[in-house]
Amino acid sequence: MAQSREQIEQMVNQWLKYVEELMKNEGLPIVPEEKTGDPLWVDVREMRLKYLIPVKRIKKFFDGLREGKIYATRCPVKGIYYFPPQADCPACMDENLEWVEVKGEGEILTFTKINVKPLSFIHYPDYIVAIARMSEGFNILCWLSTDKPDEVKPGMKVRLVVKRREPEGFFSYYLEPA
């Protein structure tokens, strides 16, 4: 299996070139399936998907990240915390939520290490995703960065920090051993 995005893109491009040649020569984009030899029509159309996701009503969260702060929202009436932060309080039928900075102390509830990654994550080394119960009582799911992955276990004390995600360079939040 190819390891890097570049390798995969190279393989795909090579293959597409082969299909293009075949289409020109044979007049049809039909190739034999690798294992069975079954004839497959290779889609001539291609669709590229990149979603545009509105964040206007939770913009404060992203502004906070840039300042090294992580915010949740909280219902001023019932005290309910929302993380991921949301703008509406369905409990009160209101949108009067207040922004509160997360203290950042927590304890691991569970975790996993992603070995087989989605195509769009294939350029990262294997990563640990953990869910921590924060001292305020809500949970946060994100990557856990540690030099000692073998020591990670449920119950471990962690803290929440803001770091840039490389190589893209966008601000994100991470758990670290406390």
């Binding site: 991921p84 569970t110 990654k117 989605p118 994550f121 995703v129 994100c142 276990k153």
Partner: peptide, 27 residues
């Protein structure tokens, strides 16, 4: 949840259930 659990943290379907497995085996 696409935005909060996939977009940034790249969970996979085995990954979601793996978190149940970790908690279960540990408990």
């Amino acid at each position: 949840n696409f935005f909060w659990e996939f977009e940034q943290f790249g969970l996979t379907f085995p990954g979601y259930y793996a978190m149940y497995a970790t908690a279960y085996l540990h408990r």
